[in-house]
Simulated scan of single mutants.
Amino acid sequence: MNTAVSTQVHASAAELEKAARRTHLTVFVLMMVVLIAAPFLGVYPVFMMKVMCFALFACAFNLLLGFGGLLSFGHAMFLGGAGYAAAHSAKVWGFTPELAVLFATACTAALGWVTGLLAIRRQGIYFAMITLALAQMVFFFSLQAPFTHGEDGIQAVPRGKLFGLIDLSQPSAMYIFVLLIFVIGFALIYRIVHSPFGQVLQAIRENEARAISLGYDADKFKHRAYVLSATLSGLAGATKAILFQLASLTDVHWGMSGEVVLMTLVGGMGTIFGPVVGAAVIVTMQNYLAELGAWVTVVQGVIFVICVLLFRRGIVGEIGNWLKKSL
Rank of each mutant, 00 (worst) to 15 (best):
T3D: 14
T3S: 15
A4L: 13
V5R: 15
H10N: 12
A14D: 13
E15Y: 10
T26F: 14
V27M: 14
V29M: 13
L30A: 15
M31Y: 07
M31L: 15
M32L: 15
A37L: 15
A38V: 12
V46Q: 13
M49A: 08
K50W: 10
C59F: 02
C59D: 14
L63K: 03
L64V: 05
L70Q: 13
S72D: 02
G74K: 08
H75I: 09
A76L: 03
G80S: 09
A82W: 00
A85K: 03
A86G: 03
A87I: 05
H88K: 03
S89G: 10
A90W: 07
A90I: 07
F95Y: 08
T96G: 09
E98T: 03
F103M: 10
A106M: 06
T108S: 10
L111N: 00
L111M: 08
G112Y: 06
V114H: 01
L117F: 00
L118M: 11
A119C: 03
A119K: 00
I120H: 00
Q123L: 03
I125T: 05
A128H: 00
L132K: 04
L132P: 02
L132D: 02
V138P: 00
T148P: 04
D152V: 05
I154N: 01
V157I: 04
P158R: 01
R159V: 07
G164H: 11
D167G: 09
L168M: 10
S169K: 13
S169D: 15
A173Y: 10
I176C: 12
F177Q: 01
L179Y: 13
L180P: 04
I192H: 07
S195Q: 09
P196F: 05
G198Y: 13
A203H: 02
I204D: 00
N207A: 07
E208C: 05
A209S: 12
R210M: 13
L214R: 12
F221A: 08
K222T: 02
S229V: 01
S229K: 03
L232A: 06
A236H: 04
T239K: 09
I242E: 11
I242T: 08
L243C: 05
L243A: 04
F244I: 10
Q245T: 08
Q245S: 13
Q245G: 06
S248I: 05
L249G: 05
G255T: 13
V260D: 07
V261E: 01
L262I: 14
M263Y: 01
G268Y: 04
F273Q: 14
V276I: 14
V276N: 02
A280V: 05
I282C: 06
I282V: 15
V283M: 13
M285L: 15
E291S: 14
G293M: 10
G293C: 12
A294H: 14
A294L: 13
W295S: 14
V296Q: 10
V298D: 11
Q300D: 07
Q300E: 15
Q300P: 03
I306H: 08
I306L: 14
C307D: 01
C307I: 15
F311H: 09
F311C: 08
F311A: 11
R312Y: 08
R313D: 09
G314Q: 04
I315V: 13
E318H: 08
I319M: 11
W322D: 02
W322N: 07
L323T: 12
K324I: 06
K325L: 12
